[in-house]
Nucleic acid binder design. Structure first.
Lengths: 225, 225
DNA sequence: CCGTACCAACTCCTCAGACAAGCTGACAAC
DNA sequence: GTTGTCAGCTTGTCTGAGGAGTTGGTACGG
């Protein structure tokens, strides 16, 4: 223990160790961990270090401590951090996930869109048009994402909207990289494809909206390779 | 402060207060928080209490502390806990999300499935057939989910697979509720629909696989209302 | 004028000890 | 048997001390 290279604070290492033991089945769901003093002695660290480790796992909703009673396991593993999953994932995998969400979103939007949704389309499309002509990259990216979000929002499905928002940071980074390699700004010229998606939703044609959404996003995916 | 009813430990209250201030814009993304002693004085608590609060928010990926440098904001709000989002979400919204994932999964599987995937289909379908005839509800549910997971897995897309796994607990609960109201076990009789999905993937027909997947899940969704 | 080495002040990190507050089970009194 | 009490456990909080890492200024040498 004393010899090991310390890249992380002791408290973090202790948290990882506890998480490992929980995952290995040493303590079942709902089980009570040994007392702080016992754990401190076991891991060879001070009591306050153990407390911080437990606090960290409490923040990750794995442990729960009750004064006077003890520390208890409330989850066998840390909830998947989606931002981390997406960061590590291959960009084509992410784009295929986005395609699944947006295609279905466009399909549902075609039957559920309200007048407010259509107004939102007009606004975000006009904004995207302006940004495509003269705005710097980051402005354009935000305008583009705003329209795509408007489509998903029009599906009036909280899960799909939340999924889209989860994907946004990763998509944004990918677009930044993509635009850097795209000196001709070819990507900005597909305003027509966006208008077409909005038109299909406006016309209440689910299959067409889904098809056009799929077509557009497939093109984006292809342009990556 | 002394008079207030203390239902939560001070460290937790301090964490909530810090989270509130971050959300209110007091500290921007990437900004450095005041030192431990300063914060402790501001909130009227001890230094170790502040440290535990920071540690909790570090576990939630909102703060990050670097020895010698300070504590920094790395997210403006706590990451959405997907399990929690799905628990609160309307079941039809969840099923529509599942439909988006599985339909696209089936489509991709039709062009990427390996011999191992097909073997997996055979195995899980046979298992589901047996369970549909005589097994108790929870066995049947696991067998059904195993086949659906096999389909998504055959798409060979880590993001889609992870999404499916995120949805599973919520879907499982919904199925339990559904089967309780389904005395005739009608739901168990759609083995043919599952075989049909597997056949389309086996035949490398993306559109057909997607259509059959969509049809099956739409039927499930309709049976809920 | 520029670059380097040094250093002081600041930060978080860890430990130890003390006491408060809350829970639990055993045991005595009724 | 039921109830009340309490001792012994647990976590919660504070304080003081020193260790370790970062940062920015400053003096020195070129």
């Amino acid at each position: 223990m004393l010899v090991m290279i310390r890249r992380h604070p002791l408290a973090e290492q202790a948290a990882e160790e506890l998480l490992r033991r929980i995952g290995s089945g040493e303590w079942a769901l709902g089980a009570k961990l040994p007392g702080e003093t016992t754990l401190a002695a076991q891991l060879g660290v001070g009591r306050s270090t153990i407390r911080e480790a437990v606090r960290e796992l409490a923040g990750r909703r794995v442990l729960e401590s009750r004064q006077g009673a003890g520390v208890f396991v409330i989850a066998l593993q840390a909830a998947e951090d989606w931002d981390k999953v997406l960061r590590k994932a291959d960009i084509t995998d992410v784009l295929e996930g986005r395609l699944a969400i947006e295609t279905e979103g466009a399909r549902l939007a075609a039957s559920r869109r309200t007048p407010a949704d259509l107004k939102n389309f007009r606004y975000t499309l006009a904004d995207r048009q302006r940004a495509a002509v003269k705005a710097p990259d980051d402005w354009y990216i935000e305008a583009d994402l705003a329209f795509h979000r408007a489509v998903v929002t029009a599906a009036h499905n909280a899960v799909l909207t939340e999924l889209f928002d989860t994907f946004v940071p990763r998509i944004r980074r990918a677009m930044i990289d993509m635009l850097k390699l795209d000196e001709e700004h070819r990507h900005r010229h597909d305003q027509a494809a966006h208008e077409a998606i909005a038109d299909a939703i406006r016309a209440k044609d689910p299959d067409l909206a889904a098809a056009r959404s799929r077509e557009h996003l497939s093109a984006v995916r292809s342009s990556i390779r």
